[in-house]
């Protein structure tokens, strides 16, 4: 009798274990069936989440900075500058948050008013920049700064096409990246280094003014 009981017990537990396992597997299979698709939709969900988030932020910032809204390059610039400031402040967590926000505003950039050639350039730029912004959203600060360097190039190239409503300074620190240097954009002429933060806050010089 007790043997029967324990056998039943074993079968029950095994059944439960297998069911639990197969649940995981089903999920896997689904993922596989959809392939990249499901990953994309996960990303989309993610960005939707950030999207809500960013809207809140946008609202706050809009009042503060009185800048134009979503979908244009000014919104991208604004989020880029916020991210830069977080890196200047050595704030890894804030930079993660702002990286996600920037990825969203980049995704919303409306390129329809540009010429075909410009649109194709902007598409490339945005695609690349979004990837860097997404990485910034999930990396340690050293990695964030690596991605920020390439992101800055993307944003600079974007501004070359879209122009800017305000005066922007392109600044450069020759010491970053094993003395290969790193550039960034700023709204202020005064140097605040996003690559070294507190360690070398004022390292760098203004390379160019963009109007």
């Amino acid at each position: 009798m007790s043997k029967l009981k324990s056998t039943l017990g074993i079968v029950a537990i095994a059944f439960i274990t297998l069911t639990a396992m197969s649940c995981k597997d089903n999920k896997n299979e689904q993922n596989n069936a959809d392939g990249n698709h499901s990953e994309m939709s996960a990303d989309e969900d993610h960005s939707k989440m950030n999207h809500d988030n960013s809207d809140e932020h946008h609202d706050g910032d809009k009042k503060e900075m009185a800048m134009s809204g979503d979908g244009n390059s000014q919104a991208v610039l604004k989020d880029y500058f916020n991210l830069k400031n977080a890196l200047v402040a050595d704030d890894n967590a804030k930079a993660k948050e702002l990286g996600a926000i920037l990825a969203t505003s980049l995704g919303k950039l409306d390129i329809s008013k540009y010429t075909d050639a410009q649109q194709s350039d902007l598409k490339d730029i945005v695609e690349d920049a979004v990837e860097h912004a997404e990485h910034i959203a999930e990396s340690d600060i050293a990695h964030q700064r690596e991605h920020f360097k390439i992101l800055s190039k993307d944003v600079t190239d974007m501004v070359a096409i879209t122009g800017t409503e305000m005066k922007i300074y392109e600044q450069f620190c020759p010491m970053y990246d094993n003395n290969k240097g790193g550039a960034w954009l700023s709204m202020n002429e005064e140097i605040r280094n996003p690559y070294f933060g507190d360690k070398m806050l004022k390292c760098g010089k203004v390379q160019r003014e963009i109007n």
Binding site: D124, I125, E127, D128, E131, H132, I150
Partner: peptide, 8 residues
Amino acid sequence: LSNRRKKS
């Protein structure tokens, strides 16, 4: 990939 992304 675009050239920009290749470089990245």
